[in-house]
Computed example of a mutant assay.
Amino acid sequence: MPEGHSVHRIARQFQRNFIGHEVTASSPQGRFAEGAEVVSGRTLTAARAVGKQMFLAFDEDVWIRIHLGLYGAWDFAGEILIDPTIASANGRMGQTNQRGTDLVFDAAGENSLASIGAPRRARGRVRMSEQTSGLGGDDEWPPPVVGQVRLRLMTAATVADLRGPTACEIQTPDEMLATIASLGPDPLVGDIAEGEERFTALVRRKPTPIGLLLMDQKVVSGIGNVYRAEMLFRANLNPHTPGREVPEEVVRGLWRDWVRLLSIGVETGQMMTMDDLDPEAHRRAMAHRDDRHWVYHRAGLPCRVCGTEVVLEEMAARKLYWCPRCQA
């Protein structure tokens, strides 16, 4: 499932390529036909991410809420202006052909643009989520529909195709605000200090294990399986510790770590969770996903710190990786 950094990057791509443009909307799959008819011919006025959810605004205060879930992905095609603040890419975001750009792919299918600076214009396709299969680019315009496209948004120069989302629905402004109000704080939305206070208060009154609380989008927005495992390890925190038993300074440390890691993820497009790497180690980490995490996806391997075998267990039907010694 895409974690918060990916959704923020997608929103920024919409901000650069779609805001201010009239869009033609359709639902080739047919499951969003009525919604597509509502927004077709309108101008996109805003794109915002909160945690794992994205909201697209159109004139006359019409909104679409999108939650990619486990299988959702956006594919972009056409003349794509890459936002310099998201000049690298994660998973299907940019993993397919972008003619005119120099892409560096890692062994897991992630990639980054070679430099960060002025926006680049690219013809081809950019896929945005966290999966690793890709599309080939071509020069046909508009590009043919491939697969089960729930929603296609098209300007004169750019197309965005949405496949496999958990949610794609029209919302009124009040419904959009109610959805956002139900979500936990996001470091990139609103005041960071207020977010810290809200997160700390929520965690400190809950008997629920901290390993579940970090995945609860009503407690904190955007954290998924990877960031959950890595943040707990970085805090030397047992995932089964009830939230109300976690010392306040540790809870605040978790928030501040999420602020930092989310910013890195948005900037680089990769969930880099290891600090203070020398240049060679950093190069390896950028090239190979397995070299950029402390415990995630390392079940049965020795802990990078103490050598104890990393444990894999299920917590609420999700995989949890942790070190039983460092996180005792």
Rank of each mutant, 00 (worst) to 15 (best):
A25T: 11
L237W: 11
R65E: 07
V104G: 02
I170P: 12
L151F: 03
F18M: 06
V189W: 15
M272S: 14
M154G: 02
D278P: 12
I223M: 14
L232P: 14
D290N: 13
P187W: 11
A11W: 09
D257P: 01
A317H: 07
H67E: 13
I64Q: 04
V219L: 06
R298M: 05
R16F: 12
T101V: 15
M272K: 03
M215T: 07
R123I: 14
A181V: 04
F18C: 07
A46Y: 02
A108C: 04
V266P: 13
P209H: 09
I192K: 11
D59N: 13
L214P: 13
V23W: 09
N238V: 05
E140D: 12
G100C: 04
Q29F: 15
D83T: 04
C168D: 12
G300I: 02
I170W: 14
I80H: 04
A47Q: 02
P247M: 09
L232C: 15
V246K: 03
R92I: 03
Q171R: 10
I210G: 10
P143F: 04
R31W: 11
L81F: 09
L232G: 14
Q327R: 02
P165A: 06
G100M: 03
V23T: 12
T172Q: 05
V189R: 10
Q95E: 06
R198F: 00
Y71Q: 11
R325M: 03
T96N: 05
W141A: 05
L277W: 09
M54G: 03
V311K: 13
I19Y: 00
L162G: 05
E37I: 09
R204P: 00
P2Y: 06
P239S: 09
T155E: 01
K52R: 12
M1V: 14
E267N: 10
P209S: 10
L188Q: 13
H5C: 06
P173G: 04
P279H: 10
I223C: 14
Y321T: 00
R125M: 12
Y227K: 01
E245K: 08
A47N: 03
V126P: 00
T241D: 05
E280P: 00
D278H: 04
E248P: 00
T208I: 06
F233V: 11
T179H: 12
Y296D: 02
S115D: 08
D106T: 08
F18V: 07
Q327P: 06
A281R: 15
R31F: 07
V23K: 10
I210R: 08
L301I: 00
D275V: 02
I116W: 13
G51D: 02
L44D: 01
A46D: 07
N236E: 09
V246N: 02
E130R: 13
R16E: 12
V259C: 15
R31I: 03
L162I: 05
T85Y: 04
A328Q: 12
A285D: 01
M231P: 15
T101I: 14
G78H: 03
L56C: 02
S27H: 15
D106P: 03
D61M: 03
E110H: 12
R228V: 13
C326T: 02
G253F: 14
L81H: 09
E60F: 01
V62K: 04
D276Q: 14
G100D: 06
L183W: 04
K218G: 11
M128P: 00
W141I: 08
N17I: 10
P28V: 02
G134F: 08
R163L: 13
Q327F: 05
Y296M: 01
A25S: 12
P185T: 10
H282R: 15
